[in-house]
Each structure stands twice: as C-alpha cells, then as structure tokens.
Amino acid sequence: MIEIMVVLSWIAILTLGVMLYALSRQIGVLHERIKPVGALSIGKALQVGESAPFFRESSLTGGMASIGGESVDGRATLVFFMSSTCPVCKILLPVLKKMGEQESEWLRLVFSSDGHEVEHREVIAAHDLHDYPYLLSAEIGMTYQISKLPYGVLIAADGHVAAHGLINNREHIESLFEAYNASQKEVAHAEQVAG
C-alpha cells in the first residue's frame, strides 16, 4: 500500500515539476515578446531631425574622420557605437560590413568606441576593419548619450540625425535604414509641395 502511495507522490511531484518548468518558460517567452521589435531608441539627448553633434577625430585605421555636419561626399553616415568586450557587437560586425558594402552608394560606416587602444587594434585586426574609420573617444559616446551597446546612429547627408537605436540583430539595422528612407521621402515630398 505504502509503495503505491509513494509512486503516486512521485507522479504528483513530476507533474508539478513539469508545470513549474512550463510556467518559467512562458515567462521567458513573454520577456522575448515584450522586447521592442525595431531598434530601441533610449537616448533622450538625441532627437531625430536635430543636427548631429560634430566630431573630427583621428581614426585608429589612419587619417582623420568626422561624424556629424554636412557630408562631403553626399552620403549618409551610420555611426556604430560598440565595445571591445561586447559579444553581440562582434557578431554584428560581419553583418554590418556586408551591409555597408551593399549600401555603400549612399552609406558610410563609422565605428566608435572607447577604452584601451590595444584591445581595439585587436578587434580591428580580427574583424578586418581597416577600410572603415574607427574612432576612439569617450567624448563622442557621452555627447550622443549612448547608454546601451551596440547602438547605431544614422546621420543624413545634411548632418541631421535620421534614425538611432539599440542594435541587437540585422533587423534592427534594417529598421534604421527604413526610418532613414521614410524621412528622405518626407523631405522630398515637402520639397515637392513647397516647389
């Protein structure tokens, strides 16, 4: 008799265990769902449509590079704020490079970070970023009020912030591009109406 009771309690405990696991899984799924779909903009200082703070710094990959201000070659600039210790940033680097090449007609890619120069030289060598400006300055991140990484700021050719947000995957980068295209269409439309 006791054996039957024990076996029954085993079954009860296992059922409870399964239910507890299912419950905890549902909470995890819920967290995933709550996560913002597009790139999440957090910075309060950075407003779409305002002119982006101008910086001109020497790049780790050689030469000087600027962000903000009117673009010399008429291309928009995507500033990618990253850190040498963030794994998501590293996973995104090849994606960014690929997209940068595909969209190179209208887009210029700039990397921005802070910290020890040696670590960043390692990142540049490991991910072959020699062709892109790579700025090392805590001031840029502070002025743009970047609080989470990796963060993307897309600056239109006229020096205005077109879109910005937290980037965790390819879709987030695309959402920045979409926001940029929408804003460009608006500008064109406004000019048409005015003209």
């Binding site: 296992l14 265990g17 507890l20 696991y21 905890s24 899984r25 909470i27 995890g28």
Partner: peptide
C-alpha cells in the same frame, strides 16, 4: 526538471 527550471528562472 529542477536543473532546466532553475536555468530558465536564472535566464528569466
């Protein structure tokens, strides 16, 4: 079950 649930809860 305990192991996967604990993991799940830590992840949550």
């Amino acid at each position: 079950l305990f192991y996967v649930t604990v993991n799940r809860l830590i992840a949550n």
